[in-house]
Design a protein around this nucleic acid. Structure first.
Length: 98
DNA sequence: ACTTTGACTAGAA
DNA sequence: TTTCTAGCCAAAG
């Protein structure tokens, strides 16, 4: 696979922006949908430019938000109606399918 | 050019 | 269930 292109980055941003309220997606899901070979790329993009995105809807495959954002994410997700169990989002119910 | 770092994941112990 | 390991790939030092 060729190196990450501008279009790939834009696609990732578009996909994240397209996640409906009350749903979540994992880094791996976004990476796969955008054609990226590694979920770390998504993490890199999010860290670099997450200003206009609903970054709180992107979580780890384990169902937990990224470590430093856990507290804020869970509160926001709970406000959107995402069911969580002791800090863990129920992926089977809230996971968004692209 | 090499090493370290990071908003990751799947698999093993 | 949790913790650890190896693989992953772009950016920064």
């Amino acid at each position: 696979m060729a190196p990450v292109t501008e279009d790939q980055v834009e696609l990732v941003r578009a996909l994240v922006a397209a996640i409906p309220a009350g749903r979540v997606a994992t880094y791996g899901d976004v990476a796969d949908a955008a054609g990226l070979s590694s979920p770390r790329i998504v993490g890199w993009i999010m860290r670099t430019d997450s200003a206009d995105l609903p970054w709180h809807r992107v979580i780890l495959a384990s169902g937990r938000p990224a470590a430093h954002l856990q507290t804020a994410q869970l509160e926001r997700l709970r406000a959107e109606g995402v069911l969580a169990d002791d800090g863990r989002v129920r992926l089977s119910e809230a996971r968004h399918r692209f």
